[in-house]
């Protein structure tokens, strides 16, 4: 196996261990090291070269960025979320027919929709929505965000507030709290 790939996998294992321990400072440090290492792979976007380990590299890179997105939610850093999400996005769109789909895809897309809603970027919210297929729209994570936007537009704020109890994923809570704050502010 490629030594660079081994190094990345080992580092990523350490990252995951720290992540489980909720040691977020170590996570951030390891993440920046990982990102630097990832730039060495030629099979990743935007180059997409057909190297022998391409599938493996793409999968691990996607995994790393997915963790990065979740991490940014945990440390409540919205800018980092946006950055990491945009780095992750090509793996979902352009690399779709190179690697098998990730189980984390819909929760993370839903999370991004929620972030746009919280930041009141409705135009971008709808732009993202157009990219989703009808099967994606059926997914509970995505559906949650879409229904929230509707209630928001209608002004059914109590539905927004009660939606916090029905979050489909634990990471959603952070954004839901922010949203609730915005709603209360708008209400008064």
């Amino acid at each position: 196996m490629d030594p660079k790939l081994t190094e990345v996998s080992q580092l990523f294992e350490r990252f995951k261990a720290a992540f489980v321990r909720k040691d977020f400072d170590t996570c951030t440090n390891l993440l920046s090291q990982l990102k630097v290492l990832l730039t060495g792979f030629r099979s990743l976007p935007p180059l997409f070269e057909d190297t022998p380990n391409a599938v493996h590299e793409l999968t691990i890179a996607r995994d790393i960025y997915e963790h990065a997105v979740v991490l940014s939610v945990k440390i409540e850093d919205q800018d980092a979320f946006e950055r990491d999400f945009f780095q992750l996005k090509p793996y979902y769109t352009d690399a779709r027919n190179r690697i098998p789909p990730s189980p984390q895809e819909y929760p993370i897309l839903g999370l991004n929709l929620l972030r746009l809603l919280v930041q009141n970027r409705i135009a971008e919210f709808h732009t993202e929505l157009e990219l989703l297929s009808s099967t994606a729209l059926e997914n509970p994570c995505i559906k949650h965000a879409v229904e929230l936007e509707q209630s928001f537009m209608e002004g059914a704020y109590n539905r927004v507030l009660s939606a916090r109890q029905t979050v489909p994923h634990e990471t959603y809570v952070y954004f839901m709290d922010l949203l609730a704050k915005t709603v209360r502010y708008g209400y008064s």
Binding site: E154, G155, A156, Y157, N158, R159, Y187
Partner: peptide, 14 residues
């Protein structure tokens, strides 16, 4: 919805 009056209230206020 389960709570139509509260919904109506917030919709009307918006």
């Amino acid at each position: 919805s389960p709570n139509p009056v509260a919904d109506a209230e917030s919709i009307v206020s918006k």
